[in-house]
Design a protein around this nucleic acid. Structure first.
Lengths: 335, 335
DNA sequence: TTGAAAGCGCTACCAA
DNA sequence: TTGGTAGCGCTTTCAA
């Protein structure tokens, strides 16, 4: 059986309170008493039981990290950053992957609440509105990351998707591209919607005729072949554009695969641009032009904000929009 | 203040035990009593407190997942698989990243023990021998993943690094490559050591003279530039080999970067092979030849084994070695 | 069919 | 400088 504080107390010939106090250094204890207690702890291989402690002090030093899609490298990076920073604050992180499923999201959030976590980092599916609002009403510290939900009063860390998309599109247009299609998935997510709107507004600004560009909707396929098939059917009787500007992170590589399979020269015939980041892009061909999200930085900031709330009770709802960078490898297009 | 079971009991006009029993369905309760209780639960937004529950029942339905390096995509995959599978069993996972630091590893393990987790999945730094042995003596379910530690009696899920390396080397030799260098880091890890030995044994078997190949030791640099610099100094006054067979996962892309920067044609002048997996390899140039580890499968199996121990008290120490696949894009070498 | 109460391991208040 | 003890919220045995 595992040793408890009582065992330690008995062995050291002191009371449990004394043991507790030497462990937590929360009041003065005589030198030799301290030593006796410490010896007993060693002898018994005593490990404090955090459940009991947390139950008492109402704090678990644990946060929940709920992301929407671990198949997306984007979120893996976020997780890494969050774990890293949380650890610096002395917090553990419980990892939850909703896989874009609102039901799973709800289930996970509920579980986390029951586990009495001290705060939540959430990349929401953007669906459980009332449930999440209830959580916020509880005053449990929560910060949104990567995606926000309209009219939810809490912190948010992300990027300005609208401007990023709009600016990148303009840059692309400046390079002479005129026929640009935008594949996307999950428009219900605000950032995706922002990207689409930014794209369209830029086209409008440049007076590009509507028929020059198409939006292509994708389901949130888990399977790469399905995604590729969707591309194939879409472009069956339609000419390929000069550029595919991919608005859904997981679609980008599928787009490359589709073009590659079809023997299309990237970027000469059809170029590919997207959102997210692509490590070592420069060393491999074709180069993808990417609107790079500072994912790691996002994770750091999100935890910082969360800790402000948990540890210092900050109430203010901050929105942090990090700048993106358009890593552009597109050749000029001469028409 | 949050509602407790007591509040629910009072509101429903029953005792706490009844409330407990309707929640857990652990003994018969009258239809209308049940309803009254459920209504009270709804009204009060009652959420059971898992800390108290866990303290009582001595089970947290939570496992710890301790990996050695989240900067390594390899482990990100593992984590994804573990979280996924653990969730299927109704368990949460606490994510811990030791970053190859034994001190951090020890700290994390200790924390997990204190949190009373039900089991541990560990990709060890292979350093805290006595500490980990103590844990095993406790009989706490633990399974090693990806890396094993000699003489530790517990489950292990990984691949047969020695044979994988040896077989791949032979295949490479069969293709006509003769001058092959092997960069590596962290030889203290058994899988890395196995790779090196497999490589050397294959060379010996084929009677390749010693001076034809070099082992290049790397520190476990976090910084890509440092890694590249190491390559540069090493090959300053030495000819490049026909192939770099990279034994350290994180080194592979750095090797490509180094060669690319130097203007070397991959794979014609110097080819690159490595261990791990590289998504979408086929769509990008240069193609890397990889001994592919079934990372996701590893995660699944590890959790399965862990659950066998946690839920069914299995004691047997199983070792699962998954097969690797050599995805080889190497051109034949004519000498 | 239900309730009372002990106790999980710990913290912290009140006394001494 | 230390100890006794109530109580955190829950489960479960025993009794009714």
């Amino acid at each position: 059986m595992k040793a408890t504080m009582k065992d330690v107390a008995r062995r050291a010939g002191v009371s449990v309170s004394t043991v507790s106090h030497v462990i937590n250094q929360t009041r003065f204890v005589n030198g030799d008493t301290t030593e006796r207690v410490q010896k007993a702890i060693k002898d018994l291989h005593y490990q404090p039981n955090d459940l009991a402690r947390s139950l008492r002090v109402r704090s678990t030093k644990t946060i929940g990290m709920v992301v929407a899609d671990l198949n997306n490298d984007h979120f893996l990076e976020i997780i890494r950053a969050c774990e890293n920073n949380a650890n610096r604050y002395g917090y553990n992180t419980i990892l939850c992957n909703t896989q874009e499923d609102p039901k799973k999201e709800k289930m996970y959030l509920q579980l986390l609440l029951q586990k009495q976590i001290d705060g939540i980092i959430l990349a929401p599916t953007c669906q459980n509105r009332s449930f999440i609002r209830n959580i916020l009403d509880t005053n449990l510290p929560l910060v949104f990351i990567d995606r926000y939900m309209k009219d939810m009063e809490t912190c948010y860390v992300g990027v300005d998707s609208y401007s990023s998309s709009r600016d990148a599109t303009k840059r692309i247009l400046d390079l002479g591209y005129r026929r640009i299609d935008m594949p996307y998935a999950l428009r219900s997510l605000w950032p995706v919607d922002d990207r689409i709107r930014g794209f369209q507004d830029a086209l409008r600004e440049y007076g590009i005729p509507e028929e020059n560009s198409a939006l292509i909707e994708f389901e949130d396929y888990e399977d790469k072949t399905q995604t590729v098939e969707r591309f194939e059917t879409f472009y069956k009787d339609r000419p390929l554009p000069e550029l595919l500007f991919v608005a859904g992170n997981k679609l980008t590589l599928a787009a490359v695969h589709f073009l590659h399979k079809r023997g299309v020269d990237i970027p000469e015939e059809t170029a590919v641009a997207g959102f997210g980041s692509f490590k070592w892009n420069e060393d491999f061909t074709p180069h993808l032009s990417m609107v790079e999200t500072p994912v790691f930085e996002m994770g750091l900031q999100a935890v910082d904000l969360l800790m402000e709330r948990i540890e210092m009770g900050v109430q203010e709802n901050k929105t942090v929009l990090l700048p993106t960078k358009f890593a552009c490898y597109l050749p000029e297009k001469k028409n």
